[in-house]
């Protein structure tokens, strides 16, 4: 087994006197969710490919506290936030990139009130940056060229933080035909997982939100549904299964699209 790709930890970097340019905040889904671990691997491969000096926290990382906070448990959130800030400040972290819009929103917008100040970017923004700088050059006529794709806006990236263009720029760079759903950008429909819904059964209703959203995505005729959030990925994947379309329709994260194009 070769050792092409590396995921150094902050502890290792510090021990060798190295200061990484960015910290990749993996998040709980990226660490534990079997499907989403593939996105973590994909993004680490991209970071390796472009040769950026990065590190992860490894097992020093803990939940940002977002799900606790949005379910109303401010105590637990602040306990998590303060101990994370201690760790981040201990490593003198300046710039954080994460693939999870919930981690992104919490660290970027909510940690400053508790003394944690970092430059935080979502991986869609970081990927857009790499593409603009020419560090990722898409294959000419790659496997996605001209194929229909639709992008599902994550609420915590879109409405919560007004990031609408970065993921679309990444898709554009892949030369794919982006077909928007009727409810997109600031009018995008939630996948149903936000506000800690990911961690409980939905209330009684006539339909599950992810099914409603998946139906809309399928109506575009796209065979690829791109997402930029671990919870959206789960919800949309479940939705596609519910509609029995998993044989023909893929739900993929932006980083996975790039890794496929680049054959990493």
């Amino acid at each position: 087994m070769s050792d092409t790709y590396k995921a150094p930890t902050m502890a290792q970097k510090m021990a060798s006197g190295d200061t990484p340019e960015i910290l990749f905040w993996v998040g709980c889904a990226g660490s534990f969710d079997d499907r989403y671990k593939a996105v973590t691997l994909a993004f680490v491969k991209i970071l390796n490919k472009v040769g950026v000096n990065f590190a992860v926290l490894g097992d020093e990382e803990t939940c940002t506290g977002d799900p606790a906070r949005r379910a109303g448990n401010e105590f637990l959130y602040q306990m998590q936030a303060m101990s994370n800030i201690q760790v981040l400040d201990g490593y003198q972290v300046k710039r954080i990139v994460t693939a999870c819009p919930h981690c992104f929103n919490t660290i970027k917008n909510e940690y400053p009130a508790l003394g944690g100040n970092y430059e935080v970017v979502h991986h869609s923004q970081y990927l857009q940056e790499l593409i603009h700088e020419g560090k990722i050059v898409m294959k000419d006529g790659g496997e996605f060229k001209g194929k229909k794709i639709t992008f599902h806006d994550s609420c915590f990236l879109g409405r919560a933080n007004d990031v609408y263009e970065a993921p679309r720029e990444v898709i554009k760079a892949l030369d794919m035909e982006l077909v928007e759903m009727k409810r997109c950008r600031s009018k995008g429909l939630c996948c149903g997982a936000g506000g800690a819904q990911m961690f409980k059964e939905p209330e009684a209703g006539k339909k599950d939100i992810n099914v409603e959203r998946t139906e809309e995505a399928l109506q575009t005729g796209a065979k690829t549904i791109a997402v930029g959030c671990p919870f959206c990925l789960t919800m949309m994947t479940d939705g596609v299964k519910n509609k029995e379309k998993e044989a023909e329709v893929n739900v993929l994260d932006l980083a996975e699209l790039i890794v496929k194009d680049q054959q990493l």
């Binding site: 087994m1 070769s2 050792d3 092409t4 790709y5 590396k6 995921a7 930890t9 993996v26 990226g30 660490s31 534990f32 671990k37 973590t40 691997l41 680490v44 491969k45 992860v56 490894g58 097992d59 990382e61």
Partner: peptide, 11 residues
């Protein structure tokens, strides 16, 4: 302690 296990699959 399993949090970083994903890295084992990297290569």
């Amino acid at each position: 302690t399993d949090r970083f296990n994903w890295a084992a699959d990297l290569n």
